[in-house]
Design a protein around this nucleic acid. Structure first.
Lengths: 225, 225
DNA sequence: GTTTTTACTTACCCGTGGGTAAGATATCAG
DNA sequence: CTGATATCTTACCCACGGGTAAGTAAAAAC
């Protein structure tokens, strides 16, 4: 009850009354659908499942969505909307390329702990129709381009070590996108912890600089094979 | 024809003759199934699809597998087998923790460009039965434990900067696992390139150390917000 | 050649789930 | 209070796909 906003829960109340309030009911459908898609995947979630959790019947859903795919697409849209927001915020607050990348990692990690955000990267694009797919693809392309441009900026301004921005972006995006595969709201790691630690690990790397000379000696002679 | 071994292709020849050769035919089924699972996902791949690509009919598949899930599980087994091999290789060749992690990244990235390897991380575990799921989970747990232990070793021997091995492992594993989502055999990036660059990026980070002092000044005062 | 065994096909069953038709009931405007 | 409209239900259709039954034909054994 107290953490109602944070926990995935109980949107069936929206349908308790038959009062006319399409917006909140539509939202309730999306929330529970997103939840179920993340729990069981889109393919294994039937519209009956969604309806059941809302205490209504399947055909009622068709008052708010044309078909199952529209529900899915809407989840993608809401999720990509969240990401777009953070991208714009970061582009505004100017700083070095490295700082932008760091800010990106932090914010994006947080989005990957929100249902709609998780949907974007966790659900299977292959379930979308051709048109919807190209729409989603364009959103994702935009994200990728932005991240690469931040990295390129960093290389140009000297804050980031010279490297292939494409591969660096794949590496960072991969680490971040994978969060939506293992994160659980009631798990040991909070969204905050994940975000800060990822920002640190991905930018700084693993190498211990303080003892780098000492280890250099040892490591050279024992490199495997 | 020349790159036949590397390209995903044409296992229907195994069924061209009715000669009795169960092993190679079974293998052919698995290869084409894995291919289709990666192209269309397990759920959207029907046994008819698999059979069609092999120029046989659906019931013929039941001579080699009890049901659809057994095909899926076998893909997982072959994939995890590949990973297990590299883990053992690395544990043998002793070196610093950092070197082991680096070797892990390199080898694991390569596995993520092989069909069976990709299946392990790309396919949806939710399609597995309870028993199969727990089997696959135990494989994955083992991989995760090994990676964390390599990181811990590195922290202990001073080659890796002190950090939470759990988060560092999530970060590295995420970047690597995500490869199987975007890699394509005929793409611009070769498996070799990906593996070497990832090993570098993930261990060294993005920060440009050579100019770190200069940038430190600039960055402090311009950090966003 | 004859028999036995394996490999495969055609024809079918049936559960599941997306989607629709048509009707019932509550809400709201006047 | 009454009609109009939005909301939701019961009952249904049908395509798809996993899985099976039963029979045919090729290959191996002797």
């Amino acid at each position: 009850m107290s953490k109602d906003a944070a926990l995935p829960q109980s949107h069936w109340k929206a349908f308790a009354s038959r009062r006319r309030d399409p917006e909140t009911k539509r939202e309730a459908v999306l929330q529970t659908a997103a939840q179920l898609f993340l729990e069981k995947s889109y393919g294994r979630t039937s519209l009956n499942d969604v309806a059941e959790r809302l205490n209504i019947t399947k055909p009622a859903l068709y008052h708010y969505f044309r078909n199952k795919e529209e529900i899915l697409l809407e989840c993608y849209r809401l999720g990509t909307g969240l990401i777009e927001e953070i991208l714009n915020d970061i582009a505004d607050h100017c700083g070095t390329g490295l700082e932008k990348v760091e800010a990106f990692i932090y914010s994006y990690a947080n989005v990957m702990t929100v249902n709609f955000g998780r949907c974007v990267m966790r659900l299977d694009q292959g379930d979308l129709s051709e048109d919807a797919l190209s729409e989603v693809r364009s959103y994702k392309r935009k994200i990728d381009r932005r991240l690469r441009s931040f990295i390129q900026e960093g290389i140009d301004d000297g804050s980031i070590t010279p490297c292939d921005p494409k591969i660096a972006a794949f590496s960072i995006a991969g680490a971040l996108n994978w969060i939506c595969m293992w994160y659980e709201a009631d798990g040991a790691l909070s969204a905050e912890e994940i975000a800060t630690q990822f920002a640190r690990t991905l930018t700084q790397g693993l190498v211990n600089r303080k003892r780098s000379r000492v280890n250099a000696k040892v490591s050279k002679q024992e490199t495997m094979a």
